[in-house]
Design a binder for these strands. Structure first.
Length: 671
RNA sequence: GGCGGGGUAGCUCAGUUGGUUAGAGCAACGGAUUCAUAAUCCGUGUGCCGGGGGUUCAAGUCCCCCCCUCGCUACCA
């Protein structure tokens, strides 16, 4: 069996790891651990993706250097991964000497082979900030529909696409000044040179069929040269023989896989070329999100090919995570960071839950929080742990913690578990984790049925000691097999099991023979049930974190996403035109007026508004106002307020109601 | 608007190349049991398989149209 090298996509050093990222790291980690406990030579590498404009800007905003920012985030990421039991052999950084050397080598070799050309490009430049502005860093009004404050490349209102040059009243998203156009020489990687090679490689079995299909679309559209340079100042590596020009972050990001391994190989006196030059000696697998397929299945293999390196054996894409059936959302409290989770819950709950959902396809997976609690408690605590919990007591009470001297008659269960282990292993290998979990739980059911049938509690009463000990010995053996099979998913619990049963290890092969005649440790709970309250606490903690800067929404998306709220976020506020049908002062409240509003199809609302000082009830009757219709009802001293009426004010206390133009009807949506 | 994925029991999902009365886990309900972290065991499902057409001896499974939903995307990686 050839050694294998495995990677997960590099998280961008611009934000925290969240539950969406973890789908990938958990998936990869399970796969890696599976190979390791089967005795396969397997290494797992990853790194922080550290370069690019967003990092540079964020560091500038925080008044620190990009290096300092990147270092801080690195420490945070490493801690998150460690606590989620992600077992990297090495976690590196793209802002490293190894990465610079390799990036340069890949570039220079490709350049010398004629795969790089230059071309003048017109680009927006902000004089005040002193940088060229990526499209997403330019805001202005849509040239097509006039919508205000749109990005430089497309209008989120009317869907028009355009060049930032066409944007009206274009201004820098950072400082607000209007950018000027400057011409600049850019470097391009001639992807088209590699078309024959890529067409073949993508059909070589390295990709899932869905992904290969997607690629054929891109081939049909034609492969265009890739702009790989950015003008300084830019946080990244300067391009050799091109002062002031830097590698675009996506050029050196995947090289981070190599850099991480190089750093590790140097520390361990291992041969880099054996892995990265010779496809006959080793295998290389990349786990990625489906959003970054383009980089990993076109640019990356082409760059490697052009530089004389081997190409990956396989690229495995997974889908996105939804929570409660919807995209993660800060306002719903479902944008949950790794740390928010860890502060309340055990990482192995999540690892197991993801395992029950993961398969080899690219489908999105849903984390339904109610389902999460029920599933983990029922499967892990109720079925698996319970097996040990319900039998270990007898072993200690009656047999000084010793198992039977010989392995007893067990109705063929041990053998059955071993047979099943073969197909479970196959599922793991094929990344069909959900099938593996189902198969394991089916075995756990069988083991519990066995205990039920033998009724050890009855045997104890009837003083049938030998049968009692035998029953427990069988149950604990079966428990051991289950825990070995779950080891890739639940490494911490597997380790606790190893200690509990006094075993040497929890590897796959050592389970071929049953244990007997040995002593076990007293049973202590191997896992606590998921507490619903903790889940709720996690959700509300996440909701409170509204003000934190947005981070990228999937494994690696390192471009320009960090500015402003999205249209979707805005649309979550349901603003409606409402007609005041009744207004009155509130007894005992000197600032409030009670308004009764007609909101058309939404019915009638009673709202308490703090505008008594500026409006008399009589003056409001029949007027139109704007209501926040989906605000949670607020219980106040003077009654419940079912929404909020919008008013303008400068903070000094004076308020002016926002009034819809004539013609608007109650119930109309404001947008 | 484009592309892609979904729409199967209350929930999460399986359903191979179309072929016996459509399945699993969880939940629910009834019963048993009490060793166990109220765990376990037995039993219980008349589900317009999103809708409408069509192909076929036979369709959840193939073809066409439509609806809903999710994600991505917005001549760009």
């Amino acid at each position: 069996m050839r050694p294998i090298l495995v990677t997960s996509a590099l998280p961008y050093a611009n934000g925290s790891i969240h539950l969406g990222h973890l789908v990938e790291y958990v998936q990869t980690d399970i796969w890696v651990r599976f190979h390791k406990i089967r005795g396969r030579d397997c290494l797992y590498f990853c790194a922080d993706d550290t370069h690019g404009t967003p990092i540079m800007i964020r560091a500038r905003n925080e008044g620190i250097t990009p290096e300092t920012l990147v270092k801080r985030i690195h420490a945070e990421h490493v801690a998150d991964f460690r606590d989620f039991l992600i077992g990297f052999d090495h976690y590196h950084s793209t802002n490293s000497e190894e990465n610079r050397i390799l990036s340069e080598e890949i570039y220079v070799t490709n350049r010398n082979a004629g795969h790089i050309h230059t071309e003048a490009v017109m680009q927006a430049y902000c004089v005040k900030d002193g940088i060229f502005l990526p499209d997403r860093f330019i805001r202005g009004n849509c040239p097509a529909c006039g919508a205000l404050d749109q990005y430089g490349d497309a209008c989120e209102s009317c869907s028009a696409t355009y060049s930032p040059l066409d944007l009206k009243e274009a201004h820098c998203a950072l400082c607000g000044t209007s950018p000027e156009q400057r011409e600049s020489e850019h470097f391009f990687f001639k992807l088209g040179d590699f078309e024959p090679f890529l067409r073949e490689w993508t059909r070589s079995g390295a990709l899932q069929v869905q992904m290969a299909n997607k690629l054929s679309e891109w081939f049909d559209a034609g492969l265009k040269a890739w702009d790989i340079s950015r003008d300084g100042p830019y946080f990244g590596f300067e391009i050799p023989d091109a002062p002031g020009k830097f590698f675009y972050v996506w050029l050196d990001a995947p090289v981070g896989y190599m850099a991480a391994s190089l750093s590790y190989f140097r520390q361990h006196g291992m041969d880099f070329d054996r892995y990265w030059r010779d496809p006959d000696q080793t295998e290389i697998y990349h786990f990625i999100g489906k959003d970054i397929l383009y980089f990993h299945t076109l640019f990356w293999p082409a760059m490697l090919k052009g530089a004389g390196f081997r190409t990956p054996t396989g690229v495995f894409a997974h889908g996105f995570l939804t929570v409660n059936g919807q995209k993660m959302s800060k306002s719903r409290g479902t944008f949950i960071t790794a740390r928010d989770y860890l502060e309340q819950l055990d990482p192995e709950y999540l690892r197991y839950y993801y395992a029950t959902k993961l398969a080899k396809g690219v489908d999105d997976i849903d984390m339904n929080l109610d389902d999460f609690v029920l599933r983990v408690n029922s499967d892990l605590v109720g079925k698996v742990v319970n097996l040990a919990s319900r039998t270990a007591g007898f072993v200690h009470k009656h047999f000084q913690g010793r198992l039977s001297g010989d392995y007893p008659e067990d109705q063929g269960l041990f053998q059955l578990f071993l047979t099943e282990a073969r197909s479970i292993a196959q599922h793991y290998h094929e990344r069909e984790f959900s099938r593996a979990m189902r198969a394991i739980m089916a075995l756990a059911d069988k083991a519990n049925r066995f205990v039920e049938e033998k009724a050890p509690w009855a045997l104890a009463k009837e003083n049938r000691m030998e049968e009692l000990q035998d029953t427990c010995t069988v149950a604990l053996n079966l428990f051991r097999l289950l825990m070995v099979q779950l080891h890739p998913v639940l490494p911490a619990m597997a380790e606790k099991t190893r200690v509990f049963l006094n075993l040497q290890d929890m590897n796959w092969s050592t389970t071929l023979l049953p244990i007997f005649g040995t002593a076990i440790q007293p049973f202590s709970p191997l896992m606590q049930r998921v507490d619903v309250k903790k889940v709720q606490a996690m959700v509300s903690a996440s909701r409170e974190m509204d003000s934190v800067p947005a981070v990228t929404s999937s494994a690696v998306v390192p471009e320009e996403k960090d500015i402003g709220i999205t249209m979707e976020t805005f649309m979550e506020v349901d603003l409606r035109v409402a007609k005041i049908t009744h207004a009155e002062t509130v007894e005992g409240a000197d600032k409030l007026l009670r308004l009764v509003l007609d909101v058309g199809p939404l019915g009638v609302r009673s709202v308490l508004a703090g505008i008594r000082a500026f409006y008399t009830p009589e003056s409001l009757l029949g007027r139109l106002v704007v209501l926040v219709a989906n605000l949670q009802p607020r219980k106040m001293k003077f009654g419940v307020s079912e929404g909020m009426v919008l008013a303008a004010g400068d903070g000094s206390g004076k308020l002016f109601l926002i009034v819809p133009d004539s013609g608007a009807e109650p119930g109309m949506r404001v947008k």
